[in-house]
Amino acid sequence: MIANIFTIVMLSLGCIFFIAGTLGLLRFPDVFCRLHALTKSDNLGVGLITLGLLPQVDSVSMAIKILLVWGLLLLTSATSCHLVARHERRRQLVEHDGNQHNKGINIK
């Protein structure tokens, strides 16, 4: 009974953080801000859902599997966030340099 209540509370909280992540994707103004929403809220959402599922598993190996999936998700989320941010920043710098170059040609 207590385990079921714990699961319901954790899964509900996890879903709220997932909704926050998705809403952030829609509401935040640029790529970098959207990455904040996706990395932080979604990671917390996954963590809460993992915690909520743990009392429902029937074997230790299944519990380890769920924790392993959570760990891998954290790792991929943080790494892909960094890669997207780095790519976007480099794109911005190239675009900025291109604009400066074009301005120079126009002045000449």
């Binding site: 992540g21 952030g24 809220s41």
Partner: peptide, 8 residues
Amino acid sequence: GTDTAVRV
């Protein structure tokens, strides 16, 4: 996560 959710 809470900080981002509160902002959103």
